[in-house]
Design a binder for these strands. Structure first.
Length: 865
RNA sequence: GCCGGGAUGGCGGAAUUGGUAGACGCACUGGAUUCAAAAUCCAGCGAUGGUGACAUCAUGGGGGUUCGAUUCCCCCUCCCGGUACCA
């Protein structure tokens, strides 16, 4: 054995051993308990970043741990290879997205391999491979047949200068990111997937997922947004020329008698009617159509409105209520119209105050009156008043009574409303999966026949920022109609990349299957036992995946209800963001490693400058490591300098996996130092020869006995941390503590040598999921002619965990004052007497009367005086 | 705006079911070793007061429940993620 730890050499050898023995090849073995450990596949952005290292190390720790526990483990890897960044890079470098993507995949694959992950690389897939997206297209056509996919219009961001559709990310402060031109909303034809057909199941099945974090389930439930309320029809006021009755949905029917106006979206039919002969309204509606489509922008924009001059009648009182157009009412949610109750809704209150509309209070707290005039909306549930026959009712009673009255008049009924909308999948972009449809002048929209799938995306185009290059490439779009044979035009929109990532976990089970989307192997491996990925995917990706797996189930492709049994959402790895804004509004981001921070005399930050030109850059706060913000940290330097084991250990030790982590590499030295100490401890021990652990030895000194107690306690703790808690940082800390205690077992006598061997073997086994290379190598030295790969997880010896005496802490009035030593099974009275006899305790009691003595078994005594 | 999460020494974090606040590590300081440095080893290391034993304060801020609160409840501040075309 070498005296020094040389990570590069041992990591190369260990990886070579795993490759030669095909150690991680996953094979379906019926009747063996399986463990499918799935990590969210990366977007091939160029280089790995620290978030990837975190994600894939977590997956690898769990995979290796389960393997030692006797499971048949599958850990696959692939590439989420379609997407916008490839087109941006293509424009910047004049390289086709395909080449950029495949080059990135090659580089990142090499990086991943250098981390020593226990991946079955034979199952690698990339979503830009026609063999993969073939089945996107195939399933889309099945969904079209079943009515689960359909066409309708939708809003997109339109850049009027580049004449192109922009992604939300490409809209900055309402302007196009390349042109700086104010973005317009534009309505276009799009394809949708009917996720709302599964609303109830998607919501209710959350309760069948105990292995998912509560926060993710809460977010999904809120996103689906089930609300019980009442549809209310406000009849048209014929005198004012209102063309039709107005339907609204509200969850606060109890406030109906407080409604003082109604508001409609700019796109609402009544708005379009009112706009005729009213140029001011037309201008306002036009203004509402500007701006981005992002919900955050819409919700924070200044609330503006305009009176239409039209009226509806209040369904209970017949009072005339004015109809306003308001920019905060969304056509896409509910009916595109709301009833406004300024007294009991914050948004309505703000709007009514601004436009001096009446505010009528009808709800008050049960036991006290409202202070009027209201300074702000009273939004809590309460009791109705000033509501005629509906006065004096609590929330539910009021809703029920008003709904019943409306129903009798034919002006309303109870209804359940969801926030969830259908999933628009059309993208006017090149680098994505082509939507397999053909537009024929005679036959209309015609699906591409199955035997002509896949519709292959040409890989040699370079986008130029204006429109979709596919639409300018006749060799792609020119085709013949499969029905009538006449010349036709191929659909040039591609699919949302979330489609690609909605089923890749199923394809891993059968990547070599070219005749079908999946085969019987999918039901051996799925559902994935553990899914690991960033919290940023808590809603969209995970909801779309759940939806797709249910569609696949209903088509007979899968036998499962939910695709991911357990979910671990890792916290994001954040880093600083530095940027400069050019005059045309375009923002350039600079990597933090290229930026120097300027400090004042007190060490406070005063600015940041770019090393390249010594000019200042703006600090954009901290945020997730991403290609678009150029704030990723390449882990390669770490791996090259210290080795993969140090990088893995450091990442796992830095914080618990679910926690957000601000990047800082302080501490890497500590991780490296620990591995060096582990190596040296083993080396020193083995200098006196290999020992076999002798379980019959019972002659442990008190010191060795306590060390052996610590050893087996550590096995219990580390097992629990890896298995149940997934807190790898505390597992590592416990092993470090054990290592620190190991000095006690230093000695030449057989009992010390045996205990040292026992401890080192256990330590190497316990650390092997986290730092597999060094453990692989140390094991060969500790147990020549055996392989760590074949070893089971260490078992704690229960006899070592028995203690005769235990330590209790003693508090006086809740403050720690002393400690006592008592027998393990001491009775309460004895514990109390021992505590009260303690000199330190006596000093604090100081003759005062004892009110109460609290004894928490195994923990503490609290004396209240 | 809305939904979800977070805030503990100089730093990353620990305290698992309401029971010793600061485990483990980094940084720093002192010492040993060295011609010297690196590496390594030993010791110290929340704040304030005290020679010291020790005492008091302290888990983003304010209030509450409890014998006891980092942990539970209410209010507030700031930060992060998502917000349907970034992935």
């Amino acid at each position: 054995m070498q005296e020094k730890y040389h990570p590069q050499e041992i990591e190369k050898n260990a990886q070579q051993y795993w490759a030669e023995t095909a150690a991680f090849k996953a094979v379906e073995i019926p009747n063996k308990k399986k463990y499918y450990c799935l990590s969210m596949f990366p977007y091939p952005s160029g280089k790995l970043h620290m978030g990837h290292v975190r994600n894939y190390t977590i997956g690898d720790v769990l995979s290796r741990y389960r393997r030692m526990r006797g499971y048949n483990v599958l850990q696959p890897m692939g590439w989420d290879a379609f997407g916008l960044p490839a087109e941006n890079a293509a424009m910047q470098n004049n390289v086709p997205p395909a080449k950029w993507t495949y080059d990135n995949i090659a580089y990142m694959r090499k990086q991943l391999k250098s981390l020593g992950l226990s991946i079955d690389w034979d199952r690698e897939l990339a979503t830009c491979d026609p063999n993969y997206y073939h089945w996107n297209q195939w399933l889309f056509l099945r969904m079209l047949e079943k009515g689960l996919a359909y066409q309708t219009t939708g809003n997109v961001n339109w850049d009027p200068v580049d004449q192109t559709v922009l992604a939300n990310e490409q809209v900055i402060d309402g302007c196009g990111w390349r042109t700086g031109a104010p973005v317009e909303k534009r309505e276009i034809q799009m394809y949708y997937m009917k996720i709302t057909a599964y609303t109830d199941e998607l919501l209710e099945a959350l309760d069948t997922l105990p292995g998912w974090p509560e926060r993710v389930k809460t977010m999904q439930a809120n996103w689906i947004g089930k609300s019980c309320g009442v549809d209310i029809t406000f009849p048209a006021d014929p005198e004012s020329g209102t063309p039709q009755a107005l339907k609204v949905f509200t969850t606060r029917a109890d406030t109906l008698l407080g409604a003082t106006y109604v508001a409609v979206a700019a796109e609402h039919p009544i708005a379009l009617h009112a706009e005729k002969n009213n140029t001011a309204l037309t201008a306002f509606i036009q203004e509402c159509k500007l701006g981005a489509t992002k919900e955050a922008d819409l919700a924070t924009q200044e609330k503006k409105g305009m009176d239409t001059g039209l009226f509806v009648l209040h369904p209970i009182t017949d009072e005339k209520l004015p109809i306003w157009i308001a920019n905060y009412v969304l056509m896409g949610y509910g009916e595109g119209a709301v009833m406004a109750v300024p007294a009991h809704d914050e948004r309505d209150f703000e709007f009514a105050t601004r436009y001096t509309l009446p505010i009528k209070a009808v709800i008050k707290a049960k036991d006290c009156d409202l202070e009027t005039p209201l300074k702000k909306a009273f939004v809590a549930h309460g009791v109705t008043f000033d509501s005629g026959e509906f006065s004096g009712l609590e929330f539910q009673a009021a809703v029920d009574a008003i709904a019943a009255a409306l129903k009798q008049k034919g002006l309303g009924d109870k209804r359940v409303q969801y926030r969830l909308r259908d999933w628009g999948i059309s993208r006017q972009r090149y680098w994505g999966c082509p939507i397999p449809l053909i537009h024929c002048e005679s036959c209309g929209v015609v699906p591409v026949p199955d035997d002509q799938l896949p519709v292959v995306l040409p890989e040699d185009l370079v986008p130029d920022g204006s429109g979709n290059p596919l639409a300018k490439t006749p060799s792609f779009y020119e085709c013949t109609c499969p029905q009538c044979g006449k010349p036709a035009r191929r659909e040039t929109d591609t699919m949302d990349t979330f489609v690609d990532s909605s089923w890749y976990y199923a394809r891993y089970t059968c990547t070599d299957q070219n005749k079908a989307m999946t085969d019987e192997r999918v039901n051996y491996w799925l559902p994935a036992d553990q899914y690991i990925g960033g919290i940023e995917h808590a809603i969209l990706h995970l909801l779309y995946s759940r939806f797709w797996s249910k569609v696949m189930r209903d088509l007979g492709l899968l036998k499962l209800d939910e695709p991911f049994t357990n979910l671990l959402t890792q916290g994001m790895v954040l880093n600083e963001i530095f940027s400069r804004k050019a005059e045309n509004g375009r923002i350039t981001y600079f990597n933090p490693t290229d930026v120097d921070i300027q400090l004042d005399e007190q060490g406070k930050r005063i600015g940041a400058i770019l090393q390249a030109d010594n000019q200042p850059v703006e600090s954009g706060g901290i945020g997730t490591m991403s290609k678009s913000k150029n704030n990723g940290v390449d882990p390669q330097r770490l791996v090259d300098e210290y080795g993969a084991d140090t990088a893995r250990l450091f990442m796992m030790f830095a914080s618990p996996p679910t926690q957000t982590l601000e990047w800082a590499d302080a501490g890497v030295d500590g991780a490296f130092r620990f591995l060096k100490r582990l190596w040296k401890q083993t080396y020193t021990h083995l200098q006196q020869g290999v020992v076999t652990v002798d379980p019959t030895l019972k002659t442990y000194s008190p010191e060795l006995k306590s060390l052996r107690f610590q050893l087996h306690q550590t096995i219990v703790k580390v097992s629990d941390d890896l298995d149940r808690r997934h807190t790898f940082n505390t597992a590592i800390a416990a092993v470090m503590e054990l290592m620190n205690g190991l000095a006690k077992a230093q000695g030449p006598e057989p009992v010390s040598r045996s205990l040292m061997q026992e401890a080192l073997e256990a330590i190497v086994l316990m650390l092997s999921p986290i730092v597999p290379h060094i453990c692989h190598t140390l094991w060969q030295e500790l147990r020549p002619d055996t392989q760590l790969f074949d070893q089971p997880w260490p078992q704690a010896d229960s006899s070592a965990l028995v203690q005769d005496e235990i330590k209790l802490i003693v508090q006086v009035n809740g403050k720690l004052r002393s400690q006592i030593q008592v027998a393990r099974d001491a009775e309460r009275t004895i514990i109390e007497r021992t505590a009260l006899d303690d000199n330190q305790v006596k000093k604090f009691i100081n003759g005062q009367a004892i009110k109460k003595v609290i004894v928490v078994p195994g923990r503490l005594v609290n004396i209240v005086i």
